[in-house]
Computed example of a mutant assay.
Amino acid sequence: MDAEDAFQKGLLSLLLNIETGKYQYQPGTRVTTVVFEYCKRVWLTELKSARLRMRGAMPDVVDTADSADILEDLERLDVVKTVRSSLEQLKDDCRQLIEWFYVDELSLREIAERLGMKESSARSKRYSCAEKLKSFYEQAAHKQGL
Rank of each mutant, 00 (worst) to 15 (best):
Met54Gly: 13
Ser120Glu: 11
Ile18Pro: 12
Lys91Arg: 05
Ser135Glu: 08
Leu11Cys: 10
Arg55Leu: 15
Arg95Val: 00
Ala140His: 07
Lys40Tyr: 07
Asp5Ile: 12
Phe136Tyr: 01
Gly116Ile: 02
Arg53Asp: 00
Gln144Lys: 15
Val42Cys: 00
Val62Thr: 09
Arg41Asp: 03
Glu105Met: 10
Arg76Pro: 05
Arg126Lys: 15
Leu71Arg: 09
Gly21His: 03
Lys48Gly: 09
Leu90Ser: 03
Leu77Asn: 14
Tyr137Met: 00
Met117His: 02
Ser86Lys: 00
Glu46Phe: 10
Gly56Pro: 07
Arg84Cys: 06
Asp63Gln: 03
Arg123Lys: 13
Leu90Trp: 00
Gln8Phe: 14
Gln144Thr: 14
Gly10Met: 02
Asn17His: 15
Leu16Asn: 15
Met117Cys: 04
Leu90Asn: 02
Ile111Leu: 06
His142Glu: 14
Ile18Asn: 09
Val35His: 00
Glu19Thr: 10
Asp78Met: 09
Met117Thr: 03
Val83Arg: 05
Trp100Asn: 07
Val34Leu: 01
Ala68Asp: 04
Ser13Tyr: 08
Arg123Gln: 09
Leu44Lys: 10
Thr33Glu: 11
Lys143Met: 08
Lys134Trp: 05
Leu108Ser: 00
Arg84Gly: 09
Gly28Trp: 00
Asp63Trp: 01
Val80Cys: 11
Ile111Thr: 01
Leu44Asn: 06
Leu52Asp: 03
Asp2Cys: 14
Leu16Phe: 15
Asp78Glu: 11
Asn17Gly: 12
Tyr38Gly: 04
Lys48Glu: 06
Gln139Met: 11
